[in-house]
């Protein structure tokens, strides 16, 4: 009995095996040629391919066995777009912004000329406009800004303008130091912007007087002078531009000083684009500020130079502020209580 069962089992197994081998050998015979894949399947049927991965995500990312996470991105074609921006658009945009600002200011100077001080009974008397600390904050920020602007423009125009003049090796050295100054002077600049925010915020809140000032075109057109407080609407715009652009430059700049600390390659490209675009707008805006503070208006420079401006000028341009200052003390133009006389 037992033997019969065993024989039966063996028979069944043999039949199944023969059938299986027969079946597979047919397909084997069809598929197997020298070098061909013996299973007859296409092993890439399931495999990833470039085209498919790019449809899922603009960059192909995988796993790597090294601790440098950035290396996990296999291909990121967006680098080509970044290059397009930096090399095709940015030089023209920045040339347009900077040269455009210079040209506009030149035209303004040509047609309007220097805005001269009007002679009056108070001409010659002085009133303190910015105390020593305010001027310190201004000059620290502005001197850093000039270095930052020049070294920033060097990233765009250095190889186009300076490099042909002084040669590759010398330019490499210049650019290296320009880069150091850009990174390290960014810190006093950021501190300066923060200081100015604290110092002048209360005088720069927009109010109704500003609307009238803007309606009168700030007195640039015509002879009338609209009234203004410590800062007129134009100066408030400069203030908010410095605060807005300054903080945008600080945030994007910090992201670039500490690359890949908070963002990946796409973020870094975006930071660079924003930093560059705002940077050139900032330079154009500050050029106008420099113009009106020095060449454009007689008497304006003293505010940041010695800190004391002509009382006559102040009464014309910042009438409400002069009234306020004079109200603090009964006896005419004086220094504010907490203001330290400079020089």
């Amino acid at each position: 009995m037992r033997r019969t069962l065993t024989t039966f089992r063996t028979l069944v197994a043999a039949t199944i095996l023969t059938a299986a081998v027969g079946a597979s050998s047919t397909s084997f015979a069809q598929q197997t040629r020298d070098g061909m894949n013996p299973t007859g399947q296409n092993p890439t049927a399931e495999s990833v391919n470039e085209e498919f991965l790019f449809k899922q995500d603009p960059k192909i990312t995988g796993r790597i066995s090294i601790p440098d996470g950035k290396a996990a991105h296999l291909i990121q074609p967006a680098g080509r777009d970044y290059r397009d921006f930096r090399e095709r658009w940015l030089p023209w945009l920045s040339a347009l912004a900077v040269l455009g600002a210079v040209a506009l200011l030149g035209l303004f100077y040509y047609f309007r000329g220097r805005i001269l001080m009007e002679r009056g009974p108070d001409t010659g008397r002085k009133i303190l406009r910015f105390n020593g600390f305010e001027r310190f904050a201004h000059w620290m920020t502005s001197s850093c800004f000039i270095i930052l602007a020049l070294s920033g423009l060097n990233y765009i125009f250095g190889k186009r303008l300076l490099m042909p003049l002084i040669g590759a090796d010398a330019f490499g050295v210049v650019a290296q130091y320009a880069k150091f100054s850009h990174i390290y002077l960014a810190w006093p600049f950021m501190i300066g912007v923060a200081l100015m925010l604290v110092l002048w915020l209360k005088d720069n809140i927009p109010n109704k007087i500003d609307i009238d000032w803007i309606k009168a075109f700030g007195g640039f057109v015509g002879d009338k002078h609209p009234s203004a407080g410590r800062f007129n609407a134009g100066q408030k715009m400069v203030f908010w531009m410095v605060i807005g652009f300054g903080s945008a430059m600080s945030v994007t700049g910090l992201m670039m000083i500490f690359p890949f600390a908070l963002t990946d390659i796409t973020g870094m490209q975006l930071m660079q684009v924003i930093h560059a675009l705002i940077g050139i707008a900032f330079i154009a805006g500050i050029l106008a500020h420099i113009y009106i503070g020095t060449l454009g208006m007689e008497g304006a420079y003293d505010a940041m130079g010695s800190g004391k401006v002509d009382l006559g000028w102040a009464k014309v341009h910042h009438d409400l502020w002069v009234e306020e200052e004079q109200a603090k003390t009964a006896s005419g133009p004086q220094l504010g209580r907490h203001q330290v006389p400079a020089e």
Partner: peptide, 26 residues
């Protein structure tokens, strides 16, 4: 001539450029 600014890394589609130090970009 290289100043280590890192722009090449942003532009490189293959993440090839690398720098001997990884902290601040200065």
């Amino acid at each position: 001539i290289c100043i280590g600014c890192g722009y090449c890394f942003y532009a490189c589609p293959f993440g090839a450029p690398q720098y001997p130090k990884v902290g601040n970009f200065g």
